[in-house]
Design a protein around this nucleic acid. Structure first.
Length: 581
DNA sequence: GCCGTTTTCGGCCCGACTGTTTTCAGTCG
């Protein structure tokens, strides 16, 4: 079910790593890395392209194009197989440990024979790294810390990967004869940022055809358990998936039960008990007679408990039951409410697609406005200059003239902005008069992550106080499973945002989801406004908006809290940054 | 291995930080 592009991208990313680990040409490794990214982010399916077509993808030349066709035809590429034979897969896995790169990984393998994270942990505890050149006590400490970080996300996968798998399975099972309903439930339906395993629910009077179809899915590598009501499998990506089949008239109760969370379900069952009822995955029953009261839909189940239907994103026992009883559940922001994306990149910096393609894709999504915010010059690797960004602005203005009259909702306006870098002192790129030329600016921390709490807090607060900074991008800079968020006093930052009329970003990229749900809840109490942005670096990334919206919902946000659901007029007023009170 | 108002070779993202060194290699964004 994986896109051919993703498979090929993964293959070349691995090849690039193997080249680096084996000490191959660093430039060659970088070329494959770049090609992997370009192919993964390319809009057209590579399996439909010939060698010529493939070479149209930037960074793909004759040699790589041919490897793609060989891979798609035979399932493997000799050059990659050659390196795979020399380096155990576990060695590459070592480079996933933060602070441990290809050079150190190779030393560990060649000198100590270490080829897995478990062996590495043992080797450190046996003090076998002490004699290696370039490895000191701090290195050991950092590696152990990195392993800890990796473990903390455990076997959980990111929400986009889990969503792909779950939607694929639901689509397949929905086609099975006798399947009345099919949906995924569990933490994925609630929109959690990482997913341990996937729960799929189906309604049918006879479960057998569904169970059979499920175990025969092409991506299933192992059947862990197989029964009449529940079957568990493991997929090629190591993800485990449970399928539960319930009678059609139990659908609502089952969906409610398997969506969770555990603590939400405890609360709903308690309410049932207080009313002389019993709630299970089969329905809501009279405790005395055992007679079924309701079970067909979630709405019925909640209604009989005296509650309105509660959106899955809220079901964490964070006050949703109480709010429901008072009829004060928030009207959650929906993806269809989003009128534009305010943080996106093009190939002028590290994006993959040119401005024209990004704008066309945004118009295709039906946006009313769309901001281009490429990296500012202080992120030196992006090689931005005044001339380049001004030339881009000219082109944005031209396109704005064209799109102003096109698009589904009667035209899309293009905004020109930049993603500024908040430096160690809290200042940003460019002087005020230059910044004044932008329609909007996102400002983000890209360096000096390890400053102390006071310095980090001061930096962010100072950025908020800058009249030309409208949105703080990915405010904690965490990368899920790879890098913890910075240690700033977030409540102080949230207060500064509210005071200065600076929005906080809910970055929709599945690796980030930053701010996260808990931060959003806290920030909202300070009266902050939010921008749900994809930070898209390719056309495909624009679709990540759903994960940002899901995270915002988990933070109880309504459309009114989110500036990119507003009309352009209201948005422009906000961007003038005049404090509301 | 890709790319070229530099075209068939010679560049290729640049700077900071960290830890191990005693002048620098490795990693990261």
């Amino acid at each position: 079910m994986a896109r051919a592009n993703d498979e090929v991208a993964a293959l070349f990313a691995e090849y690039a790593d193997l080249i680096s680990i084996t000490g191959g040409d660093a430039f060659k490794a970088r070329v494959y890395e770049k090609a992997a990214r370009a192919i993964g982010g390319h809009h057209a399916d590579v399996s439909t392209l010939d060698v010529k077509g493939l070479q149209q993808i930037p960074g793909v030349g004759r040699s790589i194009a041919e490897k793609v066709t060989v891979y798609l035809r035979t399932g493997s590429v000799p050059a990659v197989e050659e390196l795979r034979a020399r380096i155990p897969a576990g060695v590459r896995r070592l480079t996933a440990v933060p602070t441990l790169g290809p050079k150190k990984a190779l030393v560990l393998y060649e000198e100590l024979g270490v080829s897995s994270i478990e062996e590495l942990t043992d080797a450190i505890h046996q003090e076998r790294l002490r004699d290696l050149k370039g490895f000191g006590p701090r290195t050991e400490e950092n590696i152990l810390h990195g392993i800890e970080l990796l473990r903390s996300s455990g076997d959980r996968v990111l929400i986009d990967a889990a969503t792909d798998v779950a939607e694929g399975i639901v689509a397949e099972l929905s086609r099975v004869e006798g399947c009345r309903k099919c949906a995924y439930a569990g933490s994925l339906r609630r929109g959690r940022e990482t997913i341990g395993d996937i729960d799929v629910l189906a309604a049918a009077s006879d479960s057998e055809p569904l169970m059979r179809a499920f175990t025969e899915l092409p991506d299933v590598t192992e059947v862990i358990a197989r029964g009449r009501t529940k079957t568990s499998v493991r997929t090629t990506k190591g993800l485990s998936v449970d399928l539960r089949v319930v009678p059609p008239d139990s659908w609502g109760a089952a969906l409610q039960y398997f969506t969770g969370s555990k603590s939400h379900n405890i609360r709903t069952r308690e309410r049932a008990v207080h009313q002389g009822l019993k709630l299970s995955e089969y329905g809501l029953f009279d405790a005395e007679s055992g007679e079924r009261v309701v079970s067909r839909t979630e709405e019925e189940v909640y209604a009989r408990l005296g509650l309105p239907w509660i959106a899955p994103a809220l079901r964490e026992d964070r006050g949703e039951i109480e709010a429901g009883l008072r009829d004060e559940l928030p009207e959650l922001v929906q993806e269809r409410d989003i009128r534009g994306d305010l943080h996106t990149h093009t190939d002028l910096t590290d994006g993959l697609a040119p401005l024209e393609e990004m704008a066309a894709a945004a118009a295709e999504r039906g946006y009313a406005y769309y901001a281009i915010t490429d990296h500012a010059p202080n992120l030196f690797m992006q090689r931005m200059t005044d001339e380049r960004i001004l030339a881009q602005r000219e082109r944005v203005r031209e396109l704005d003239g064209e799109y102003g009259r096109r698009g589904r909702r009667g035209g899309m306006r293009l905004l020109h902005g930049a993603e500024l870098n908040i430096d160690a002192e809290g200042a940003v790129d460019w002087p005020d008069d230059f910044l004044a030329g932008f329609d909007l600016c996102v400002a983000s921390v890209h360096s000096h992550f390890n400053q102390d709490r006071a310095a980090l807090t001061r930096r962010l607060v100072r950025a908020c106080e800058n009249p030309y900074v409208h949105i703080i991008g990915h405010p904690t800079t965490r990368l899920i499973g790879r890098r913890p968020g910075i240690d700033a006093d977030l409540d102080e930052v949230f207060a500064a945002c509210a005071r200065t009329g600076t929005a906080l970003e809910v970055n929709a990229h599945p690796d980030r989801l930053d701010l996260n749900d808990e931060h959003i809840l806290r920030a909202k109490r300070h009266g902050v406004k939010f921008a749900i942005d994809t930070d898209a670096h390719s056309v495909l990334h624009l679709a990540h908006m759903r994960f940002g919206v899901g995270t915002a919902q988990r933070g109880w946000l309504t459309g009114d809290d989110v500036i990119n659901t507003w009309s352009l007029t209201r948005l422009r007023r906000f961007l003038r940054k005049t404090p509301s009170s």
